[in-house]
Design a binder for these strands. Structure first.
Lengths: 264, 264
DNA sequence: CCATCTTTGTGCACGCGTTCACAAAGACAT
DNA sequence: ATGTCTTTGTGAACGCGTGCACAAAGATGG
């Protein structure tokens, strides 16, 4: 997951497994591409290849939605696009607000993938008074003070948080209090929300760290010394007893993993 | 995920499960925060709460790294920070290149979470000649022509792709050919890479779609009509036989899910 | 030195997700 | 109509991840 879900007890909602739901957008994207090329039908094998998954997995995923295929032929592209869109709730309009209009927030506001999927940016919100009124992606930025009003007026139920880590929980609380029940969080913090509110997290630095892990493993394996890591421990690492003696990580002040978004 | 991994057969590398690796950055972040507050030790319960996970899971995760805790006391914060950093490979310097300096690319270049974790932006690369030389985040953008040279000169093994979908595979191929073995992909496309190359994907619109699914489910349940979906099929949806008759999704030209980054 | 108390580390069971493999279903040709 | 061929849909097995619950380990106090 770029990104993972946030401790939901694997609610198999309506019988569709979480893992399947997470793949539906992938299928939808591949199907949309096929639809644009006017391909009428597609086999599970072809579609699976286009989506980068196993064909058996794809068929099982689709089986949760219903029997939408034709044996010996494959799946009707247009029909499947509609069914998946409907299942994901993309046939309706979802107004979203983006809070924190820094570099990342602006990039999100400009992101074309939202509008083309039924998501409409209802408002851009920032705590910086100097930002208020300034147009970003053709939309005037509004001040945080108006957050509650905006949520209610537009019936917003999905909020995107692109603020610095320090402000995220506070913004989150206000969003939830105003009626938002789904949050996409780009700030590097664990958000605490009441039951019934969904949070998904996208963390850029975490993804890189996972890559670094595998990269290190590759480098370590190819140099042949893939055995003893106990020896490595004893020489390079500070002993647990000598705590706080050597600050092994060269910390750079209280950065606290702040994203490069404009603060308040 | 925000994001998910890309079809790797769950390589339990060096005995550490993938799921655990994915959580290590979370622990590291929480520990770093504690370290800055000069907290000497922390219990699994406290740390788990700070990282937003189950304490048993955290203990099991740490058990894969070794016995770094002290029973009756907890874990030594500094020591653990070092061990996790080392395990993730963050004690060494990782030069990365960012390809595609649009809105998103610029946001990534400015992202502070990279530098503070051992990641160093070695170069910014864009296909637009007009961008060449222009400073972004204090670094002069270089043209795509120099991609191979940059990779080799700096010993870059991690690349970040923030180009439009159409250019992603091509950029990916060139990165891999030049020696990059780990790729973080922000373009909404499935990248094909040879064995030995890791790809992680961060897809903004997929995350929103997953939220929309749950949002729809919540709305549907509270309105009480949680039973028959078969009836819904018969009236609202086009029959599979009437293919290509009604373009149910109002497609908006060949957008193909292009992110709002500056093209080539 | 012993008792008590806290907290780790882990064996075990359970459930979800993935994959295999094949029967059922339909298209298509003869 | 009948047979063949393609492709779906799914039963079943397997493996990974998660969480419980507890024994082992060490700290702490008397």
């Amino acid at each position: 997951m770029a990104t993972g879900r946030t401790h939901r007890p694997a609610t198999r909602s309506r019988g569709i497994p979480e893992a399947t739901v997470a793949r539906l957008p992938l299928y939808l994207r591949a199907l949309t591409a096929l639809s644009e090329r006017s391909v009428p039908t597609v086999s599970s094998e072809e579609l699976a290849a286009a989506a980068g998954v196993n064909s058996a997995k794809l068929r099982k995923d689709f089986s949760y939605l219903g029997s939408y295929g034709t044996r010996g032929v494959g799946y009707d592209v247009e029909y499947l696009v509609y069914q998946i869109s409907r299942e994901l709730g993309l046939t309706q309009d979802w107004p979203v607000v983006i809070v924190g209009i820094g570099n990342l927030g602006a990039a999100l506001a400009n992101y074309g993938g939202f509008a083309s999927r039924g998501f409409r940016v209802a408002a851009l919100i920032d705590a910086d008074p100097a930002m208020a009124g300034k147009p970003v992606a053709g939309i005037a930025v509004q001040h945080t003070d108006e957050l509650e009003q905006i949520i209610q007026d537009n019936g917003v139920s999905i909020g995107v948080i692109a603020t610095p880590a320090g402000a995220a929980q506070q913004v989150c609380d206000r969003l939830v209090a105003a009626g938002v029940t789904s949050i996409l969080n780009f700030a590097p913090t664990v958000l605490t929300v009441p039951d019934g509110v969904d949070v998904r997290k996208v963390d850029l630095s975490i993804e890189l760290q996972i890559l670094a892990f595998h990269e290190q493993r590759k480098a370590g394996e190819e140099s042949g010394q893939g055995g003893s890591e106990a020896a490595e421990d004893l020489e390079g690492a500070p002993a647990p007893s000598a705590r706080a003696a050597a600050a092994t990580t060269d910390r750079k002040g209280p950065d606290g993993d702040v994203p490069a978004v404009m603060p308040a």
